[in-house]
Design a protein around this nucleic acid. Structure first.
Length: 152
DNA sequence: GCCAACGTTGGC
DNA sequence: GCCAACGTTGGC
């Protein structure tokens, strides 16, 4: 099993939005960065995924989700009306992938970015590196456990 | 709202 | 292939 973190703006899709989708889960689409896309493609069913709120008042990890469907073609890239439309992506060779995530739980207290930066176990994680804009972040098992140890 | 850091585009 | 210009991300 592997571990990940995905960023989301709570105004667009918060942990509560994900929770509301229940057992159906939510398509994690709209990723338009190659490095992040490649990580999406590495995800396997059952992988654990931290949900992170960015660009908001309380930046940090707010809960946990799980991969329920491995990478599939992101349909939004072919929809001209979508903000995620990509005219250069060809149906015979789609550029962008999505996965399906299902809500696992919301932490009673979010783990703030500020706190994450103080954890020795997280020192090497891309999330806390200066200037990192990666929206899908791989986690080592040790990093995953260090975070879980601080939430309930 | 500001701005640093980063990724992408496109002219040459 | 270089690199300037531009657009975006995301913390603060």
């Amino acid at each position: 099993m592997k571990y990940w973190l995905v960023k989301t703006e709570p105004d667009e899709c918060s942990i509560d939005t994900i929770a509301d989708t229940g057992s159906e889960g939510i398509a994690w689409d709209g990723v338009r960065n190659y490095q992040a896309r490649n990580f999406l493609r590495e995800m396997a069913k059952g992988d654990q995924v931290f949900i992170y709120h960015s660009s908001c008042a309380k930046v940090g990890i707010v809960g946990l989700a799980e991969v329920t469907e491995e990478a599939f073609v992101d349909p939004l890239q072919f929809e001209p009306e979508s903000a995620y439309f990509d005219p250069k992506s060809m149906p015979e060779n789609p550029r962008w992938s999505a996965v399906r995530l299902q809500f696992v739980r919301k932490f009673k207290q979010p783990l703030a970015l500020k706190e994450l930066k103080t954890l020795p176990a997280m020192a090497e994680n891309p999330l806390v590196q200066k200037g990192s804009r990666l929206s899908v972040v791989p986690f080592q098992a040790s990093e995953y456990q260090a975070v879980l140890a601080l939430v309930d």
